[in-house]
Simulated assay, not measured.
Amino acid sequence: MPMTMLAAFFLSGGEFALAADTDPLDAIAGKALFDRNWIPAPSSTDGSDGLGPYFTARSCVSCHAGGGGAHVAPSRNDPSRDDIAGAVLRFGRADGSADPYYERQLQTDAVPGLVPEGSAHFLPELSYHLNGPPLASGVKAGVRIAPPLHGRGAFDQISDEEILKRADPDDKNGDGIRGRANRTADGIGRFGWKASQVTLEDQVADAFSLDIGLSSPKAPHPYGDCTKLQTACLGAPNGESKLFDGREISATMLRIVANYIESLKPRALQDDSAGARIFDATGCAQCHVPSLKARDGSLIPAFTDLLLHDMGSALDDGVGEPGVASSEWRTAPLIGGGNRGPRRYLHDGSAATVDEAVAKHGGEAARSREQFGALKAEDKLRLIEYVNGL
């Protein structure tokens, strides 16, 4: 099919719909990179090698099938049992420092000649095995699941001012909600479970590096999450090439993958004024703000304020990030249907339903949790249906 016909297919509501300012050919090329299964270096194909040496996925699509997120599916290692497809195990201390041997994430796969760092299962509860030394003193393990991507790319269009106007770190209005922005060295974070990345391209680069082991100008680490103690990993070949800005992924490749993600639009909001009213009355909309204003003045479906909130002990796994406490989480956007298979909720997938997720809300969200619990049965069901329809 000629490129012009491909562009017309996508623009006409084919596999994905494009934003008005998105180059259709860039988005198509970005989808090809998103779907690509990367292979170890060296290879006769420069454009596909550089995998690992340690990794948790061979492609973006393996965790984000159809642009969706983590879901329940038969375990890759044991098809007779279900597990969470698209979940990873993160390591860290409450102050955000990483493990000196395993660094930030358990890498459950490796290129030929290397032994993976370990294995993990997430259902019915977390269990994991390390093939190396035990975790260092004070280092904890926490599950992170891949979120749906539909609608997330639009957060690049939201200004710092739009985020900051809802911040109230000192709770000056006395409502118990103390949202704060994650002010990173590169700017105000918008992306990731702890708002660690400022732009969509930053997030893409971090995922390529951490999950697949591919370096880029934004994440110049040819050995991914490998540490200086992992000498076998550091001794493996890498796929860096002058064809790709001296890295395994070029700046252009990051941009077009970001363009593809920007093309993944959230499904149209349902017409449910009653559900929206209950959502607002229980206080959910204070943090899960239904829409945010873009720099051009348009409204972006969001159901997040992009701020960090202390969510209490039930959602504190002890794994912090630099400048972000282990109990703090960026308000999860509730938009983004399209998952294939049963969904899991919260950052760790520990909730199978919306009401289970709400029950774990503490800290700044405790009042909303209590208001949800006090709802009449029919109103609670209406609210759950509303959230599931976003």
Rank of each mutant, 00 (worst) to 15 (best):
G96T: 06
S97L: 10
A98V: 15
A98K: 14
D99I: 02
P100V: 07
Y101A: 11
Y101E: 14
Y101R: 08
Y102L: 06
R104E: 12
Q105W: 11
Q107G: 07
T108A: 05
D109F: 06
V111R: 08
V111Q: 10
P112L: 00
P112S: 13
L114N: 11
L114D: 13
V115M: 14
P116A: 04
E117G: 15
E117H: 13
G118D: 10
G118S: 11
S119P: 04
S119N: 11
A120Q: 06
A120W: 01
H121A: 14
F122Y: 13
F122H: 06
L123N: 03
P124N: 03
L126A: 07
S127H: 10
Y128V: 03
H129W: 12
L130F: 07
G132E: 09
G132H: 13
P133N: 09
P133F: 01
P134D: 12
P134E: 09
L135Y: 09
A136G: 15
A136N: 08
S137Y: 09
G138R: 01
G138Y: 00
V139T: 14
V139Q: 08
V139K: 09
V139C: 07
K140V: 10
K140Q: 15
A141R: 05
A141E: 06
G142S: 15
G142Q: 13
V143Q: 00
V143L: 00
R144T: 15
R144K: 13
I145N: 00
P147N: 07
P147G: 03
P148G: 12
P148F: 01
L149P: 02
G151R: 00
R152K: 11
R152C: 07
A154C: 03
F155E: 00
D156C: 05
D156R: 06
Q157M: 13
I158Q: 07
I158C: 05
S159K: 00
S159G: 06
D160M: 01
D160N: 14
E161W: 01
E161D: 14
L164G: 08
R166G: 13
R166M: 12
A167I: 03
P169M: 01
D171S: 06
D171A: 06
G174P: 01
D175V: 04
D175Q: 05
D175L: 02
G176K: 07
I177S: 11
I177R: 14
G179W: 09
G179V: 11
G179M: 09
R180L: 04
A181R: 04
T184V: 07
A185K: 11
D186N: 13
D186V: 05
G187F: 03
R190L: 04
R190V: 02
F191M: 05
W193I: 14
